[in-house]
Simulated assay, not measured.
Amino acid sequence: MTGEGTTAARSVDVRGIDKSFDGVPVLRSINLHVEPGESLALLGPSGCGKTTLLRLIAGLERPDNGEITIGDVTMASESRWIPPEKRHVGMVFQDWALFPHLSVGKNVGYGLNRDERGGPRVVEALDMVGLADLIDRMPSTLSGGQQQRVALARAIAPRPSVLLLDEPFSNLDSTLRVGVRSEVHRLLTDLGITSIFVTHDQEEAFVLGNRVAVMREGLIEQVATPIELYRHPTSSWTAAFVGAVNLIHGDAQGLVASTAVGDIPLMEERQGSVEVLLRPEDLRLAAGGSAEVVQVEFYGHDMMVVVTLPDETKITVRTSAHTDVTTGEQIALSYVGQPAVAFA
């Protein structure tokens, strides 16, 4: 769906992109397709190249090799270069980049044509983020969450067909971040705009992204929906990066692996030595047994319990906050999840 007052969403295609700085490769053979109206998260650790990829799409950097297309228009290639102001792309920067000497309304109108800066587009954009009544305020008088929404309003005021967001919530405290994130998710859904955002936070990527592209050392490791990525990661590194995980040794025979936790059903046939992926929420505790509780972390809504098996393997279990378990207790451990992923 395309929201009122917005431009039709466009696809984004990145093909064979390489980028180096001072001879150091930052991106290597990047290929990525984003559907019109899709929200894609670029997830990865610091230094993996995700912000550089975003800046290349925006036109703030030039690729060394490869091609970038938005809709049916080639924006960057060996023979063609479209400057950022002509790409019809909006961008929200990590520090929001508001002009401290301009009012909220003038900040939002900055990217518009001069004859539109005092017109309805400014009010329309501020109304979308719930700040129309603050149009005459100065940025210094706003909370962090309000400043973030002003930056978003400025990005959507020109009605871009693609919106890029670089760690948009990193400067907010944890409590405020959750609320603002939900508001942004609602707005992007309502607008139906193609959006690509950078984050190092797995939870943030899963909440906001229709799909998630996991990056590592200048490469894209995997692109999938949040559920697919969490349940079916293609590498042990990705498995650990997108959530708490237990990777335990097993001896596979077809669709079953024998492990220190017991026999584990597998998604795909394997033979011989494997690493089996067990998510903490797929394990259950029971009184009595040969495992020992060595750590209990209470979070209110649930608990994380670390146990040591007789072979010294440490296993993390996510369990109900009502579970009655204490450090030093002997317990039994069992697997209750779906068939598991195993890495050879």
Score class of each variant (00 low, 15 high):
residue 240 A to W: 00
residue 89 V to M: 07
residue 66 G to Y: 06
residue 146 Q to H: 11
residue 287 A to I: 03
residue 324 D to L: 06
residue 8 A to N: 10
residue 73 V to N: 14
residue 122 V to E: 13
residue 20 S to K: 04
residue 90 G to D: 03
residue 253 Q to N: 14
residue 74 T to F: 00
residue 268 E to W: 00
residue 191 L to Q: 06
residue 49 G to F: 01
residue 42 L to S: 01
residue 264 I to W: 01
residue 311 D to V: 06
residue 302 D to H: 12
residue 308 T to M: 07
residue 319 T to Y: 01
residue 112 L to S: 13
residue 338 Q to D: 11
residue 163 L to Q: 02
residue 238 T to H: 04
residue 81 W to F: 14
residue 85 E to P: 07
residue 93 F to P: 13
residue 153 A to H: 08
residue 115 D to W: 02
residue 35 E to L: 04
residue 189 T to G: 15
residue 252 A to Y: 02
residue 62 R to W: 07
residue 109 G to S: 09
residue 185 H to V: 07
residue 139 P to K: 03
residue 318 R to F: 07
residue 5 G to L: 01
residue 41 A to M: 05
residue 64 D to R: 01
residue 239 A to D: 07
residue 91 M to D: 13
residue 236 S to M: 05
residue 295 Q to R: 08
residue 98 L to V: 10
residue 310 P to Y: 04
residue 105 G to C: 06
residue 168 P to E: 01
residue 153 A to K: 06
residue 224 A to D: 15
residue 53 L to E: 01
residue 114 R to E: 15
residue 123 V to L: 09
residue 79 S to E: 15
residue 28 R to Y: 00
residue 255 L to M: 13
residue 263 D to P: 03
residue 245 V to A: 15
residue 123 V to A: 13
residue 273 S to K: 05
residue 22 D to K: 08
residue 164 L to S: 14
residue 277 L to M: 15
residue 253 Q to T: 14
residue 241 F to T: 08
residue 101 H to W: 04
residue 200 H to A: 14
residue 45 P to Q: 11
residue 332 A to K: 02
residue 260 A to L: 00
residue 329 E to K: 05
residue 139 P to E: 13
residue 333 L to E: 11
residue 301 H to V: 10
residue 315 I to K: 01
residue 201 D to Q: 09
residue 41 A to S: 13
residue 63 P to N: 05
residue 5 G to P: 02
residue 306 V to Y: 05
residue 308 T to L: 04
residue 268 E to G: 01
residue 162 V to C: 09
residue 29 S to H: 08
residue 341 V to L: 06
residue 253 Q to P: 00
residue 238 T to S: 10
residue 217 E to W: 00
residue 144 G to H: 06
residue 25 P to T: 11
residue 57 I to P: 10
residue 181 R to K: 13
residue 127 D to F: 00
residue 86 K to V: 07
residue 144 G to P: 08
residue 260 A to I: 04
residue 3 G to F: 02
residue 86 K to M: 12
residue 103 S to K: 05
residue 171 N to A: 15
residue 207 V to A: 15
residue 62 R to P: 07
residue 155 A to I: 03
residue 52 T to E: 09
residue 120 P to W: 01
residue 54 L to V: 10
residue 219 L to Q: 03
residue 83 P to V: 15
